[in-house]
Design a protein around this nucleic acid. Structure first.
Lengths: 208, 208
DNA sequence: ACCTGAACACCGTTCAAGT
DNA sequence: ACCTGAACACCGTTCAAGT
């Protein structure tokens, strides 16, 4: 797909986003974020290999921008999955399904967000904040569930880590093709089952 | 730590293992498997940059050997964690704690096994078999639990995927320092809590 | 301001050549 | 058999120079 606008779009201030998009394209093509080359991104976009340095301090900064975009997208998926559901425990479960749905719909983003990025989040405030917001969604629902007497007591953060671990692990295994599932309905069903079980495990009652 | 044996150990057939060990060292130093350079591994071991090709077809083959070694180690941890426990549900939970314990004790292995390796497991039969054996431990305990009427019915593989997702996700988040936990006792306690919750979620009874 | 081309110090991999 | 050194086609990053 060659760029076809008459006035070349890469000299008018959208080079930054074009680089992000090209990086995602290339990661998708290789199913791999770690071998992404900045020079190849520049080539794909049609600029010299030094041009990206006008917009990003280094390769890591480009990946941080991809990751930040990913967290904003993830937040959308979480909210969309929970809308119209009231009960906190079920909202938490639905958000988990939304999480996995995001990961399999945007595997390149997800890989950069988690599987390859050695980025110290603290060096990228926008990324750090976006990540914290997504995590806060889970914590909020757990606190609401505890307040409603539906969920185990204890540090809400700790319960959220358990929820997060489950959906993160499932997402990673699916994205890296370590589970023999490809059909989207099978994946959705597994995500439903897994989050349901996880939620039941965090539910109040039926002690040890 | 220079090699100190009088007769240089790298010309007597143990270069292969020396390369594996050096790779693990370097990954540990950088906290990163993706930037590992084969030339650097060779340098560390004290051979020319072409010497590794006598033992490994390419860089990926070296990483596959690291991963396979990791799965054998993991299997040890799983078995050690379950020994002297009889009840299948509790054996499953204990194996989960053992899994996380392995990951935090051998983060370099774990990173190569999961976070970076684009290795198609099928291209490395030894690796594939070692990975299957570890997964089989979970499936076996689930089937035993179902037979004993302790655990939910349904495809044991599916239940095992849920268990695996939890411990895998927790391990990855811990290793990549995405949870603010460093104290080993805190980590162990979280692993206990998480696997306990997961097991309760897969337990029979107390329906939806 | 934004981009280029040459340059530097690295890679992974191959291959003829040495022992 | 096992290892080396030169070579090739790549990297990420820098920097003087161009518009």
């Amino acid at each position: 797909m060659p760029q076809s606008t008459k006035e070349s779009p890469y000299h008018h201030g959208n080079l930054r986003q074009s680089l992000i998009d090209a990086a995602l394209e290339l990661i998708a093509e290789k199913q791999d974020a770690k071998t992404l080359s900045l020079r190849e991104v520049a080539r794909r976009v049609g600029v010299s290999h030094a041009a990206p340095y006008r917009h990003f301090a280094d390769k890591e900064a480009l990946l941080a921008a991809v990751a930040e975009e990913g967290f904003h997208l993830l937040l959308d998926y979480l909210h969309r999955a929970m809308v119209h559901i009231d009960e906190p425990a079920r909202r938490l479960q639905a958000s988990g399904v939304g999480y996995v749905r995001f990961a399999i719909a945007h595997p390149s983003h997800y890989r950069v967000m988690f599987s390859t990025l050695q980025v110290d989040y603290l060096n990228y405030p926008g990324l750090n904040e976006a990540g914290a917001k997504a995590f806060a969604v889970m914590v909020d629902e757990i606190m609401a569930g505890q307040a409603a007497g539906q969920m185990k007591t204890g540090d809400p953060q700790k319960l959220a880590w358990v929820s997060w671990s489950l959906v993160h692990g499932l997402s990673m295994l699916l994205i890296e093709h370590q589970l023999p599932l490809t059909d989207e309905q099978d994946i959705e069903a597994l995500a439903e089952f897994a989050t349901q079980s996880s939620m039941e495990g965090l539910r109040l009652g039926d002690g040890p």
